Amino acid sequence: MRDATDVVSEVLAADGPSAQAVLDALDNAGYVVVPIDGGGPSWMPATDRSRAKVYQYAELARDGATNETISAQMGISTRHGERYAAAAQAVGLLSRRR
């Protein structure tokens, strides 16, 4: 994966760069940009720690584990697992293979 700094620098060097162009370039380079403004649904993670759990959940889910298995492995309730799954799906982590 290309360094994020290089990706952003290329977009900024172009004529008329925009914030959307930066986000699109990062997405095309394989990065996932997760909004942290708290304006999303109530199940969207708001802290660094909970966002890290979403990434962990997504990695296990992409490997084929069920919600029950993932929840047990992460030491969380299946309801919390469902919330992490919903957040991972919303930001596109479940459809990507790294």
Rank of each mutant, 00 (worst) to 15 (best):
E68K: 10
H80C: 10
T78C: 00
S18V: 07
D48Q: 12
R96V: 05
R83W: 03
V33L: 08
A61F: 00
I76P: 03
A46R: 15
S50A: 13
E68D: 15
V91S: 07
H80W: 08
G92D: 09
E10N: 11
D37M: 09
Y31P: 03
L23W: 10
S18C: 06
Q73C: 07
Q73K: 15
V7A: 07
A72Q: 15
M44K: 08
L26F: 07
A65H: 15
A52V: 03
Q73D: 15
G40Y: 01
A29Y: 05
D63F: 02
R2V: 07
R83A: 06
S71V: 00
A13R: 10
M1A: 11
T69D: 14
V34P: 02
R62Y: 02
G64A: 06
S42H: 08
M44W: 12
H80T: 09
S71K: 01
R97Q: 11
D63C: 09
E68A: 15
D6W: 01
Y84W: 04
G81R: 00
A65Y: 14
A13W: 00
S18P: 02
A58Y: 03
P35A: 13
V22I: 14
R98L: 05
V54W: 00
T47R: 12
G75L: 11
Y84G: 07
A46E: 15
D63M: 12
A65G: 10
L93Q: 06
R97G: 11
A25F: 10
A52I: 00
T66H: 06
V7M: 02
G16C: 08
I76W: 10
V91M: 08
V7W: 04
M1I: 11
Y84C: 08
D24Y: 04
A90Q: 12
S50T: 13
D15M: 02
S9N: 13
Q56G: 08
R96F: 00
L60Q: 13
G38C: 10
R83I: 12
A52E: 15
L12I: 05
Y84S: 08
A61Q: 09
R2C: 00
S9V: 03
L60H: 10
T78R: 14
A14Y: 02
R79C: 00
L23R: 15
R79K: 06
A46P: 01
D15Y: 04
S77F: 02
R83Y: 03
I70P: 13
R97E: 12
G75F: 01
A4R: 04
R49T: 13
G64M: 04
A86I: 01
T69M: 10
W43D: 14
A85N: 11
R79L: 07
W43Y: 15
D63H: 13
A85P: 01
A21Q: 11
G92T: 01
R62I: 03
G75E: 06
E68R: 13
V54Y: 01
A13E: 09
T78V: 14
S95I: 08
V54G: 03
V34R: 01
V33G: 08
K53I: 04
G30D: 01
D6H: 07
R98Q: 02
L26Q: 05
E59R: 10
A29W: 00
G39S: 13
E82R: 11
E82Q: 14
